[in-house]
């Protein structure tokens, strides 16, 4: 690892990692860096105004029984107790969500990276055209996407099964049985998400100096070797960002599943977020808030694990194999 300390793990301060400074010198150091604080201050100011109140409200809510227009009744940990021990959906929704995370995250990011590398190919004509096409699902209204996918995947009247029928296969219950429905959701998410992922990877790939590839080529590196020795090490910081945000996004997965299967068939594609919304909209606000914090805990746990295993991905230093 290089000269600069990686910003995480959290416990280590970049200030005086080697010697313990007294308060006065810390303050002096901080005054010296006042522009830095100024530059990052908008986030904290906005969070103080728009974030802390909702957060405290949520914590209080999760420890109370409440509904709009009434006072909160303090119930202690009862909501959490109810959720963990008696909620009929928590376990299943957690399993569904984790299963989706497990196969969607690697395939989605891997696929997007490969596609981005392809679209970054030097002599590819029509790159702008292709990029626009892969970006189309992202700009298309989700409601319409869901309608089209239902038309595609309908068991009896869908295009996919009509085609399969022509070659003597099927019909596959794409939306009405557990495993096919989960596959359908995976396909939908990839299809919807790949455009943005490709876009971000392209943004990262542009930062790589062409000379590095030329040098590697001259050294006789195959394109696969170039990918693993040049491309991948250099985009690891962005990859880390993608892994973490995609994890958070998948654990909070809602709209696409809601629109495509609405948690069905028989509740087997119900996600954590859907359950939370169900609780909230059926006036069980306290439980809903508690559910949210349980989800927050799950995300925290998973992202901490990811950060631990990917701690070398914070910077590019030392990643290049010569």
């Amino acid at each position: 690892m290089a000269a600069k300390a990686p910003p995480l793990p959290v416990s280590r301060s970049s200030v005086g990692a080697h010697r313990r400074p007294d308060a006065r010198s810390v303050l002096r150091e901080m005054w010296k860096h006042r522009t830095d604080y100024l530059f990052i201050s908008p986030f904290y100011i906005l969070f103080a105004v728009f974030g802390i109140y909702p957060l405290l409200f949520g914590i209080q809510l999760s420890l109370s029984r409440w509904q709009p227009g009434r006072d909160m009744t303090w119930v202690g940990l009862q909501n959490y107790q109810t959720l963990i021990f008696t909620d009929p959906e928590l376990g299943r929704a957690l399993l569904n969500t984790l299963a989706m995370l497990l196969w969607i995250l690697p395939t989605g990011l891997g696929g997007a990276l490969i596609l981005a590398v392809m679209l970054n190919a030097r002599r590819l004509a029509g790159r702008g055209f292709f990029r626009t096409i892969f970006f189309l699902p992202f700009v298309t209204s989700q409601v319409i996407v869901a309608i089209v996918f239902q038309q595609l995947l309908d068991k009896n009247y869908g295009w996919v099964n009509l085609l399969l029928g022509k070659i003597g296969l099927g019909p596959v219950p794409w939306l009405t049985e557990t495993i096919p429905a989960q596959i359908s959701i995976t396909l939908l998410l990839h299809w919807m998400g790949i455009g943005t992922n490709v876009l971000i990877f392209l943004g990262a790939l542009q930062s790589i100096d062409r000379e590095l590839y030329e040098a590697a080529e001259i050294d006789g590196a195959t394109s696969t070797q170039q990918f693993f020795n040049v491309t991948f090490p250099l985009i690891r910081p962005v990859m880390l960002f993608m892994v973490i945000t995609a994890t958070i996004g998948l654990i909070n997965l809602y709209a696409p599943v809601k629109l495509l299967t609405n948690g069905g068939p028989e509740g087997t594609t119900l996600t954590l977020f859907m359950r939370m919304i169900d609780l909230m909209t059926s006036v069980r606000y306290g439980e809903g808030a508690g559910f949210g914090f349980i989800m927050g805990g799950i995300v925290l746990l998973i992202t901490l694990l990811q950060m631990k295993f990917l701690s070398g991905w914070w910077t590019v230093e030392g990643n290049l194999k010569q």
Binding site: F57, G58, P68, I248, M276, M280, Y285, G288, V299
Partner: peptide, 13 residues
């Protein structure tokens, strides 16, 4: 702050 599910924020926001 990214870890908090947005739906909790909704009503207070």
């Amino acid at each position: 702050t990214m870890l908090m599910p947005t739906a909790i924020n909704f009503v207070p926001f």
